[in-house]
Simulated assay, not measured.
Amino acid sequence: MNVHDAAPIIVPLLVPFLDGVARKVRAVIQKRVGPSIAQSWYDLLSFLRVECNSPVDSLAFRLAPYIAFASAIGMLLFLPFGEKAPLGFKGDIIAFIYVFTMFSAAVVMGALSVPSSYTSAGASREVTISIVFKPLFAVVIGIFAIKTGALTIEGMASALKPSISVLGAYLLLVYLTYVEAGFVPYDIAEAETELLGGPLAEYSGRLFAIMLWAFQIKRFAMIWLLASMLVLPFVGGITALLFQCAAFALIFLGMVVYEAMNARYRIDHAVRNGAIALTLGVFILVIAWTGW
Rank of each mutant, 00 (worst) to 15 (best):
Val99Ala: 02
Tyr203Gly: 00
Ile129His: 07
Asp187Lys: 04
Phe61Ala: 00
Leu253Arg: 10
Arg23Lys: 13
Ala221Asn: 03
Pro86His: 00
Val231Gln: 03
Ser124Asn: 10
Ile146Arg: 01
Val56Pro: 08
Val107Ala: 11
Trp41Arg: 10
Pro55Arg: 01
Phe78Pro: 09
Ile73Glu: 05
Asn273Ile: 14
Glu202Cys: 13
Val127Gln: 06
Tyr66Ser: 13
Arg62Asn: 11
Tyr258Glu: 13
Ile131Ala: 14
Thr128Met: 14
Ala27Gln: 10
Arg62Pro: 03
Gly149Asn: 15
Gly197Asn: 05
Pro16Cys: 00
Leu136Pro: 03
Ser40Ala: 12
Phe100Gly: 07
Pro199Leu: 03
Ala240Cys: 09
Ile143Met: 06
Ile94Val: 09
Ile210His: 03
Ile97Glu: 13
Ala85Leu: 05
Arg266Pro: 10
Asn2Glu: 07
Leu77Glu: 02
Ser40Gln: 15
Leu63Met: 10
Pro86Lys: 01
Thr279Ala: 11
Arg264Phe: 00
Ala157Tyr: 00
Ile9His: 10
Val3Tyr: 09
Ile94Tyr: 10
Ile131Thr: 11
Ile141Glu: 03
Thr279Phe: 09
Ser71Leu: 01
Ala105Arg: 14
Ala150Thr: 15
Pro185Met: 05
Lys161Val: 11
Gly74Met: 01
Val140Asp: 04
Arg62Thr: 11
Ile73Val: 12
Thr101Pro: 10
Pro35Ser: 02
Leu79Tyr: 00
Leu167Phe: 12
Phe220Ser: 05
Tyr42Glu: 13
Leu172Glu: 04
Phe78Met: 15
Phe81Trp: 06
Ala263His: 14
Ala246Ser: 14
Arg206His: 13
Gly91Arg: 07
Leu172Val: 06
Tyr186Ile: 04
Ser204Trp: 07
Gly20Met: 03
Lys24Thr: 02
